[in-house]
Design a protein around this nucleic acid. Structure first.
Length: 817
DNA sequence: CTCGTGCATGGGT
DNA sequence: GACCCATGCACGA
């Protein structure tokens, strides 16, 4: 109830020499409490607790001292009357008139630029309607009124906007704008505080604002106006012809918007030059207000302005107003400024760093904001930074009804806020009503979030409010990884593990977690070329490494750590085979035995035991399934799938660590295991594979057609070697000898993996593509690009279908991704 | 672990 | 479809 942390910023001074932005805070717990008809401020201690009560900022300009202004204009005016400076209006057509004469002429000369009477209130001259209650009262009000209070009446630029403001919104428009407008409304209401009723109040909720309505709302406002009651507080003309309920039903926006509470003589004043008495001759920023969306138009009332200007001699020109969002009011201390507002009213900045912007609050306290921008989508986002102080101060004050400035703890405020909200502001009914709940939520969102995090459960709302941006909500899309991507991630990671070598001379610490031995190294691993570790005839540990150039496998000592790119020429240990021309020591069969690839295993398994093959596939797929299944935990599972560190895993866990023991020490689940987990995995894997096969057959068909094209079959410059890792693709082939191996060629021709969509790189089948650490090597010979996509996992090297020439190989790095 | 910063994202206009 | 802008979030201090 108590907070409208409205920050009012004033710009400039009379001379226009320097623009000093004045932050004026209208917050007044007492006022607000009374305005909302609620309890004393002491009991309403939270910030933004009222639904729809939102903070806002307004920017004002202070061109100069009011007193000097009044001297100027307290002279004879066009109509011949001599009036005080606050008793006149500036005419659309130019010139000024005293209030009395203006009233007469209103009736006689409606403004043709205005909307047809049908859009307005029947029976009222349009012009009078535009003279909102506030305007009117401003004009008519007694006491010092700054020059700028000659309202929009005399600013022709404002008029084109007016028709839209008067439009009775259709249902959608109404509802769309309801919440935002309500924010304004509430803001306005709170701004008004105990001052006067505001027509806009009614718009939010008929009942809610009854106690605050101006008498003119219910009574005959025409008479009020025609009577020219100086004390008339913001009577709202547009409300007069309808009952309150009707208003509440369908016209809140037009009400709140129809009469900008503080219509601005915008153009005449923004340059900081006192144009008073000089009509429209001095137009500093002619583009000003019309460039802004109406929602940024200042809504401050004259009374509020008076309050702000107060004793100071400055005259304040509202520039724009923004209802603070949650993030604006959050503890980050950043306030996003509407772009147009920033560009129109604030000093131009070219450096993202921005400039310091001195700002004064209502109490005269000075703050320095950093006015800056962020590049954003070829555009800019303007922000005020460093507002933490003022905002926190407001929080504190609002939370405790204490105007002394102390740093607040968001949590406190939050808790109070929430409990307040629960007890008063929100009920299911309320929340269902129009957009009220939305607006309320909006204003409260940041607080809610804080609450969730920091406040004891008791403070949680009774009514669960679905957090729009919950982790599972729309905002989490960035976190979502498509299943296939997950598999790719998992496999890629798995492959990457193969590139890691333990740091030399570093003895691992063996950690036992749930029976799994896990090696821990103090030093980070070395990323090197993956090799196949084996034993020679003497039982010594050796490694088989594949040459980057000729793809032949060379024997290197077990302790050797090879660079990620390694060729025969670097084979220091076997000079005989330090040239690519040298024969490969291993036969293909030997290599097949060596390679722990799924492909190789499967080829054998297929012959021996179809069932075990299925089990093998099932286990291979288990990781994928685990990832797919475990939606919430996918991140952790995908990240931990192949690491040997998984402190949280436990028996029964379907994560990869539980399924696959570290360092190839055998399966935790045997291939023939028929436990629930394995059976589930098998079952699901079958489904998965079935789907894939359907997909693949479609793609294969397409690919076959492509391959049958002459230019494709004749131009085989591109070869892609791609590892299927331990995926179960049966299309893959171990290629031990390179392309000059007849057998391989035969296999290659028969078993080309046709999963790749010939047209699109991203269409690579997950089975084939996933898990591959690819290396695209661009042939430097020019002409048709020769690409070899090589990838390995666990020493497995698989040849897959050559991609089409149009694949953008230039984009691929020649380094390991 | 918290906080600040800067950018990215995506819903809304 | 372009733009705005509220806010999420990665990253570094």
């Amino acid at each position: 109830k108590e907070i409208s942390a409205k920050i009012l910023l004033s710009e400039g001074n009379k001379s226009g020499e320097s623009n000093i932005y004045e932050a004026v805070d209208l917050f007044d717990p007492t006022m607000l409490a009374s305005s909302s008809g609620e309890k004393s401020p002491e009991t309403n201690t939270s910030a933004f607790s009222h639904p729809g009560v939102v903070p806002g900022i307004e920017l004002f300009q202070t061109p100069g001292s009011a007193s000097s202004v009044s001297k100027k204009i307290k002279t004879q005016i066009h109509c011949g009357c001599i009036v005080s400076f606050h008793m006149f209006v500036l005419l659309d057509a130019g010139g000024i008139e005293c209030i009395t004469c203006t009233k007469k002429s209103f009736i006689l000369t409606p403004n043709p630029a205005w909307p047809p009477p049908s859009l307005l209130l029947p029976g009222l001259p349009e012009r009078i309607k535009d003279l909102s209650a506030k305007n009117w009262s401003s004009i008519a009000a007694s006491g010092p009124v700054p020059w700028r209070q000659a309202p929009s009446l005399f600013n022709p630029e404002l008029h084109p906007k007016m028709p839209s403001e008067f439009n009775i919104p259709t249902s959608k428009k109404l509802s769309d704008s309801m919440d935002k407008k309500e924010n304004l409304v509430f803001s306005g209401r709170l701004m008004n505080g105990g001052l006067k009723g505001d027509a806009s109040q009614i718009s939010e909720n008929g009942s809610k604002c009854e106690d605050q309505q101006s008498p003119y709302v219910n009574d005959n406002p025409h008479s009020a106006i025609l009577k020219n009651e100086p004390s008339s507080p913001n009577p709202d003309l547009t409300l007069n012809t309808t009952s309150k309920s009707e208003i509440a039903e369908h016209s809140s926006i037009s009400v709140s918007q129809a009469q900008p509470p503080a219509p601005l003589p915008a153009a005449a004043n923004y340059n900081g030059v006192d144009s008073f008495g000089e009509g429209q001759a001095q137009i500093g920023r002619p583009q000003d207000r019309n460039q802004l969306l109406p929602r940024y138009w200042p809504k401050i009332t004259e009374q509020e302005l008076q309050q702000i200007s107060g004793d100071s001699n400055s005259v304040i020109t509202p520039l724009f107003e923004k209802v603070l969002t949650a993030s604006d009011a959050g503890k980050i201390g950043r306030l996003v400024l509407p772009k147009k507002c920033a560009e129109v009213y604030l000093p131009p900045i070219s450096n993202p760093e921005g400039i310091p912007l001195p700002v004064q609050d209502l109490k005269g306290e000075e703050w320095v904001f950093q006015f800056r921008f962020w590049p954003n989508n070829n555009s800019r986002m303007y922000v005020l930074e460093g507002k933490k102080g003022p905002v926190n101060t407001r929080d504190k004050a609002s939370a405790h009804g204490d105007s002394t400035a102390k740093k607040s703890k968001p949590g406190e405020v939050t808790a109070q806020h929430n409990s307040k909200r629960n007890s008063v502001s929100y009920s299911p009914l309320t929340m269902n009503k129009a957009n009220l709940a939305d607006s309320g939520r909006k204003s409260n969102k940041v607080v809610e979030n804080k609450c969730d995090a920091k406040v004891k459960p008791a403070a949680k709302p009774d009514i669960p409010i679905k957090r729009k941006n919950s982790i599972l909500g729309s905002k989490s899309k960035r976190l979502r990884i498509e299943n296939e991507d997950m598999m790719e991630l998992k496999l890629t990671w798995e492959q990457a593990q193969g590139l890691f070598h333990p740091p030399p001379n570093n003895v691992p610490k063996i950690v036992l977690i749930d029976g799994c031995e896990i090696e821990e190294f103090e030093e980070p691993p070395i990323i090197g070329r993956p090799t196949i570790v084996a034993k020679n005839n003497l039982g010594e540990i050796i490694q088989w490494a594949q040459c980057e150039d000729c793809f032949k496998w060379r024997k290197v000592p077990g302790y050797a750590i090879l660079p990620s790119r390694w060729t025969c020429s670097e084979n220091l240990w076997d000079p005989k085979r330090s040239l690519c021309s040298a024969d490969q020591e291993l036969t293909l069969d030997e290599l097949e035995d060596l390679l722990p690839s799924a492909g190789a295993k499967k080829m054998k398994a297929e012959k021996e035991d179809p069932d075990s093959l299925e089990a093998l596939e099932g286990l291979d797929a288990l990781a994928n399934v685990a990832i797919q299944e475990d939606g919430d935990a996918y991140a952790s599972s995908s990240l931990h799938t192949t690491t040997t560190k998984h402190p949280r895993h436990r028996p029964g866990c379907s994560c990869i660590v539980c399924i696959q023991p570290p360092s190839g020490k055998g399966h935790k689940h045997k291939q023939t295991c028929t436990c629930n987990l394995c059976m589930t995995v098998k079952r699901r894997f079958k489904t998965l594979m079935l789907r894939r096969e359907i997909k693949q057959s479609e793609k294969a068909e397409t690919a076959r057609q492509k391959l049958q094209q002459p230019e494709q079959s004749g131009d085989d410059d591109i070869q892609m070697f791609c590892d299927a890792g331990n995926s179960s693709s049966s299309h893959n082939l171990v290629n031990g000898e390179g392309s000059n191996n007849d057998q391989s060629k035969k296999k290659l021709s028969n078993q080309l993996d046709l999963n790749i969509h010939p047209e699109r790189e991203e269409d690579l089948s997950p089975v084939l593509n996933s898990g591959s650490i690819t290396r695209m090597i661009q042939d430097g010979t020019g002409g048709p690009q020769k690409v070899k996509k090589i990838s390995r996992s666990g020493g497995n090297l698989v040849v897959s279908q050559p991609p089409p020439p149009e694949v953008g190989v230039e984009n691929y790095s020649t380094d390991v991704a």
